[in-house]
């Protein structure tokens, strides 16, 4: 049901440029206006989300300590899992954000007869890493369409990425890896009963969308070739804010690719994909476990009424006296003033 719904939405998204450009001939709308609009939504949307999170304070320092705290000098503390200083926090965050360290810990629980056993389950980690890093490399590679003199790091990355020189033009390794990663993530949602049960359409949709983007991209590279020079004229114009429709033929596949990318960009800030920036805000990861060393201030902390010693002593005066527990008049007098 959820999968079908996402597939339908995806089909509609593909139909829109097909009709818009193919039938109605709205080339400028799809080549210029919609991409600009989508990326405006992407930038402003994400910045809005960031500021919105930042508007709420983190009242308490609630680090998840997954390792030994810093305490006695002769006990080795876990710098990554229980960071006590800022740079240790940065390190922890680095490992979280770039290497998905928490996911790497993943286990799978199963019954072995009456015994619960926990096996390592790193597939999810691998799938996620493949997908995310391939995506990153692919984005960097795409800079060749947006910059006039392509910087050497982009050239190097492209060269490494097409290292195997299979076919003409050579296939990119990351193109295969991203499909492998995405395919695994999708398959997992369909096959693993638990994950399947908790998946919404909004979980399938981004996967399908990105898969479609990757597929249209790969198709264009390997089989249904567009006029790259024309594309670069368009994309370079977009990036330098001199948008113009090039003379050459941009090809339908390119319009679909571009429209799906625009959809992804516009969808990004309002979906679970915001985890990309949200992860940096995660209070259980980005705070040091130094609670007893330094003060953390909660801006809305307010005083509360509690049972003071004076009230308590009054209440229990008789039993205190009887039990021979000292009565403290001095303090109650001070407190009264």
């Amino acid at each position: 049901m959820n999968l079908i719904f996402s597939l339908i939405v995806l089909a509609i998204l593909i139909l829109i440029p097909l009709i818009g450009v193919g039938v109605l001939g709205l080339s400028s709308l799809f080549a210029i206006f919609i991409p600009y609009l989508a990326f405006a939504i992407f930038f402003f949307g994400l910045i809005y989300r960031i500021i919105d999170w930042a508007r709420s304070p983190q009242p308490y320092k609630i680090t998840t300590t997954s390792g030994q705290q810093k305490s006695l000098s002769w006990i080795k503390h876990s710098r990554l899992e229980s960071p006590a200083s800022s740079w240790e926090v940065y390190l922890r965050m680095f490992f979280e954000v770039f290497l998905f360290r928490s996911l790497f810990r993943n286990l799978r629980a199963d019954f072995d007869g009456k015994r619960l056993i926990y096996g390592s389950a790193k597939w999810l980690w691998l799938g996620a890493i493949l997908f995310h890093f391939s995506f990153l490399v692919i984005m960097i590679r795409h800079l060749r369409f947006f910059v006039n003199e392509v910087p050497s790091f982009v050239q190097k990355i492209s060269a490494v990425d097409s290292f195997f020189q299979l076919g003409v033009p050579p296939i990119y390794i990351t193109d295969i890896l991203i499909l492998a990663g995405l395919g695994f993530l999708l398959l997992r949602r369909l096959v693993d009963a638990k994950v399947n049960y908790l998946s919404y359409a909004s979980d399938y949709f981004p996967l399908l969308l990105i898969i479609s983007i990757a597929l249209t991209g790969i198709l264009m590279r390997l089989y249904v070739k567009p006029d790259l020079y024309a594309i670069k004229q368009l994309t370079y114009g977009l990036a330098t804010f001199n948008p113009a429709l090039p003379k050459g033929n941009l090809s339908m596949l390119f319009y679909i690719h571009l429209f799906l990318v625009s959809s992804l960009a516009a969808y990004f800030p309002f979906s679970k994909l915001v985890h990309m920036v949200g992860v940096f805000f995660s209070p259980t990861r980005n705070m040091p476990n130094d609670n007893r060393m330094s003060r953390h201030i909660n801006p809305w902390e307010y005083p509360v009424k509690y049972v003071t010693y004076a009230e308590w002593q009054e209440k229990f005066r008789d039993v205190l006296e009887e039990a021979g527990i000292p009565i403290d008049e001095e303090w109650t007098n001070v407190a009264q003033k």
Binding site: R49, D52, W53, A54, S56, P57, Q58, P59, I62, L103, L124, A128, D192, K194, V195, L198, S199, Y200, D203, K272, V274, H275, G278, V279, F281, S282, P283, T284
Partner: peptide, 14 residues
């Protein structure tokens, strides 16, 4: 912030 954020960023990876 914890609450607000946790409501937003779960990807239901399971």
């Amino acid at each position: 912030r914890s609450f607000k954020l946790f409501m937003d960023i779960c990807v239901r990876c399971g």
